[in-house]
Design a protein around this nucleic acid. Structure first.
Lengths: 381, 381
DNA sequence: CTGAAAGCGCTTACAG
DNA sequence: CTGAAAGCGCTTACAG
């Protein structure tokens, strides 16, 4: 028993020290903490992680009941200023952090929203993910991420991980899960989707007007006088690609340019496919003075293929992408593209989820693309 | 009461439907579920999220005690095959997912490791983060991410978020938190760092031999006959930059080239700073035939500055970066660089944390850089 | 204004 | 082989 008390005191002292570090790093640097360091330095890892301060510890230290501490923390209930003061001091001193696992268990919600990410390492999705993080800042909710690595089976697993953590809502970024599953999911949980539109769930989808984007890109080219405009598609049947292609077709017909199937070649949204698309076009002897790739990554691949053959951009061929990835501002030459506000879309998804959770009306959630003219497009010769 | 039973039955049926979806999506598409859809379609969101199956539900359904179900799930304890069978069937039927909040509360650990990320949207850190995800696959632990957005105050907050979720271990990616804080942190929790070396905690740091990398890059250049080699540094005093610079100096002296301070200019790891560095060099009339940027992003910026002035790469000036970001393979020309295996380093960090959690000996965790020669470097004229 | 008690969904000695 | 009971750390009616 005495040992336990001694242990508690030690921990208290130790935690107080950490707090000091936060307040003033300089104190630390002059070695004031050395003695305590040594005392605690020899525990095993397991012991270290075991003891965290609880509500009861705080209550005992402040001489009140756990109920009171809980109420003070939640802001509910009226206490005498002195009591509140006393409790707050102990909370600080013990460096108490509520156990959200216990809170969640009791309250029946976890104050957590699960984010099902496609590929945590794609320049495209990462901005969205970052936007989601921003969107939840100071909302009282924390996002937790679980990745599908672009494989459907993994996505199911990731979904279970999130579900077992009792997330209060779910944000799906892209994803290859079938619409049908998402429709069912939407019935048992609050669901928001980014970069994907599921029919029947439009109100919970944050998406871009891709048709307009495709239209803008192509019109930019036709306006510059181009009439032979190649198009590199994204993944087979991917709606983003299909919609951008639709915009491409519309713009052509508006400009009175007949559609030529020879000019459209299949890609898969990856750089390499853009490169191969250009190679295919060129080796087949297809003539074109401009190329519109369904995303920036393919545009970059196309650019390299052109470079390898000594074809100048934009002098010989104009190039336009889609997305406006951060680094294409530094492409050679800086890439003309259609900006998709991924960060804002992520933020919007977070807000949408928040509003749904709190029963408020959802914010506007369809986004418009913006043409960003840089240096990879020029007048047709 | 009757209502409650009805409700349960409905839920059961509904959940069974979801399971069917997983087994066969085609059934869904032909609209078999329509009736049930409508019945459940009008609940409010709050009601939807409230009811999740519990151990007790399963136990009741299978006609056993919760203890038994728990033991079956954990694999502990011997039951008759029939009982086990009966329970498993109910688990599947009810689509039961254990509540990890409750498990964590009871067991005293959360089977979760917190990852403090710098900037969730940096091509550099994202690969590491992805590696961490991979490293935890099938380990029984899940990583949860919380971001610091490169601001120290935010990092403290993110740390608290992780702490309140009772993570069993912590992985810090980069981070601007002071060494002193990390040293204290390491005493109260299992701590692993990636892309950062804190002295006194080397055993828990996964890092690259940056000096060697700087040496390799510079030697590559001197071997090609370059003698006027510019160097663009990273953030002020950032150890990665300092170490790469050290390698640069060593390589120069080995090659018998005197160090010229005029050739080193300060950057901050961002593209724009690489661009400005070249501008500064050129406008000051400093002569150089090769440039080594402390990371790829700055090399890309430098490349653009050169392009703007009509200076060819590698014909006029050779360029070498550091990191081997995915997209520099598609730079114009493809960038010669020093590869830092970020994905592998992330994976290693996860394994290190896992081993520490389980008291096993840590894996090897210092990585070697690899020179990747592409097309941005050539013989000096 | 404040405390004792019950309970969230689990797990795990302790009985039988 | 299986169940009843206690308890993890909270919150919240319910008393006083």
């Amino acid at each position: 028993m005495e040992l336990y008390i001694l242990w508690c005191l030690l921990c208290g002292f130790f935690r107080a020290c950490i707090r000091m570090v936060c307040l003033s790093e300089s104190q630390l640097l002059c070695g004031e903490l050395e003695p305590s360091n040594r005392e605690v330095g020899c525990e095993s890892y397991v012991e270290r992680t075991k003891h965290a301060m609880t509500l009861t510890d705080v209550a005992r230290a402040a001489g009140v009941s756990p109920s009171t501490v809980s109420r003070i923390l939640s802001g509910t209930a009226r206490v005498t200023p002195e009591t509140r003061q006393r409790v707050m001091v102990e909370i600080k001193r013990l460096n108490y952090q509520p156990n959200v696992l216990a809170q969640g268990l009791k309250r029946g919600h976890s104050r957590t929203v699960g984010v099902l990410t496609q590929e945590l390492n794609s320049p495209f999705f990462n901005e969205t993910v970052q936007g989601i993080e921003y969107g939840f800042e100071d909302s009282g909710y924390d996002p937790i991420f679980s990745g599908g690595h672009s494989r459907k089976s993994e996505e199911r697993r990731a979904l279970d991980v999130l579900r077992s953590r009792r997330v209060d809502a779910l944000i799906v970024v892209g994803s290859f899960l079938p619409d049908a599953l998402l429709l069912e999911l939407a019935k048992e949980t609050i669901l928001v989707m980014v970069g994907r539109r599921v029919s029947g769930l439009e109100a919970q989808c944050v998406f871009l007007d891709n048709v307009q984007g495709g239209l803008d890109a192509t019109t930019h080219l036709t306006t510059l006088g181009h009439r032979r405009i190649a198009f590199v598609t994204g993944n087979n049947n991917h709606p983003d690609s299909a919609e951008r292609f639709q915009g491409y077709c519309t713009a052509l017909s508006t400009a009175g340019i007949p559609f030529d199937p020879q000019l459209v070649v299949a890609g898969d949204f990856g750089e390499q496919s853009g490169l191969m698309a250009v190679d295919a076009l060129l080796s087949q002897g297809v003539r074109f003075t401009a190329l519109f790739a369904a995303n920036d990554q393919m545009a970059c691949g196309a650019r390299l293929a052109l470079y390898r053959r000594g074809i100048r951009v934009p002098d010989d061929i104009s190039l336009i992408g889609f997305d406006d990835l951060k680094h294409v501002l530094y492409a050679i030459p800086p890439l003309t593209t259609v900006r998709q506000p991924m960060l804002e879309m992520g933020q919007c998804a977070a807000r949408l989820a928040l509003n749904l959770l709190e029963g408020k009306s959802p914010p506007e959630h369809t986004f418009s693309p913006t043409l960003v003219v840089r240096e990879s497009t020029a007048m047709a010769r």
